[in-house]
Design a protein around this nucleic acid. Sequence first.
DNA 1: TTAGTTATTTTGATTAGTCAAAATAAACGT
DNA 2: ACGTTTATTTTGACTAATCAAAATAACTAA
Lengths: 220, 220
Amino acid sequence: MATSTVENYLKHMLLLSEGGEELVSMGALAEALAVVPGTVTTMVKALADSGHVEHRPRQGVRLTAEGRRVALNVLRKHRLVECFLVNVLKMDWAAVDTEAEQLEHAISDEVLDRLDALLGHPETDPHGDPIPSRQGKLDSQVYATLATCVVEKPLRIVRITDQSAEFLQFVEHNGLLPGESVRVTERNLASGLVTAKKTAGRPLVLSLAAAGKILVQPTR
Amino acid sequence: MATSTVENYLKHMLLLSEGGEELVSMGALAEALAVVPGTVTTMVKALADSGHVEHRPRQGVRLTAEGRRVALNVLRKHRLVECFLVNVLKMDWAAVDTEAEQLEHAISDEVLDRLDALLGHPETDPHGDPIPSRQGKLDSQVYATLATCVVEKPLRIVRITDQSAEFLQFVEHNGLLPGESVRVTERNLASGLVTAKKTAGRPLVLSLAAAGKILVQPTR
DNA sequence: TTAGTTATTTTGATTAGTCAAAATAAACGT
DNA sequence: ACGTTTATTTTGACTAATCAAAATAACTAA
């Protein structure tokens, strides 16, 4: 059985490779896991021995089919737990990532299935992140962001890709939750500022960096 | 923050001392934790250094006030999680102990409180084991068992003190769940057999050992 | 007492995961 | 092509938790 350390390595590899194809660098992984690069090298070699990853020395790592399977299962647990914490326990949107970080390693597949049923088989978590299916399918649709979308087009927010409590609180405070309608009224690359407007509300200015973390879809 | 290993040591000390007063032997602890005695000695010395226990060499250990506080919190998590798994997720009575074993170390105090509210502040878990209060009060009432109660007196089952899946399945199969009414019709110390009868049902024969794990209360 | 049994403690080794810092390889700019 | 910067790997050391087996202390029965 994979330890929670192993589960974390695999989960972050999945998240960093946007679907699991490209090589992930040791540095990026070290950064994501908050350990020094040397530790990652050591661990990745062990993971290669156990068949979870393929290690290309001095280039990077990639998940094997088995590693990807484990990673998707952990991610499914993480996101379903987030749904549970927000929808059933009514916890704060911004706090649940930290909680789920612990719980994702403690819940069994049995509990996972029942939780999924209880929640009505949701497709995304409260931040709009897609939940991998039981069979390991993960929606990999590429969305526009408030930093890349067409100006003045009516949009619907679908997902927030930064799970830090500060950013989520900012998003919540400004009513930019998934499901809300907005449009970008102005974008200035030089100043790095984006102005967005909700259907009923005053204009809201945010940085390109922040805007890039808010994924949107054209309203159909 | 206490590791889950530390939490397990403290929890089992609490369970083995029936309330936290008497000394617990190294052997009993080793048995309960499924480690060799030498490991327990080492660990207990560390726990004494951190102020969680008082170690009397060659005699045993006892929880300090702080150790007891931590242990009660873990036990509260364990039992509330069991309630959740059975009452909300409708999981099998006999399987939830194993699940809760993992979850008790992963849920935060915040989640614990909300779970408690969601479940309506239950006083016992599905096996009848008392749930420590948030303030650390644990019902320590001493109950009779089917092995010690008065013969022919009408009783109500309040608690099952063996959490092994096999025993719980046996109990469930024979309708001896907490809340049920029974009486002992015969007890033979020589053969070591107890005969019990539910209000509507045929007589049921069980060993003294098994009968001693079923706690009862006179029906008032 | 004295010998023998039993519980506990000590000692030395092992595994998983980590860090600091030195060594190495690759990439980059001129 | 050459030195410099940057990423990665290696090396040696450390902590938490464990086991096997030897040493010690305590209890027990004659």
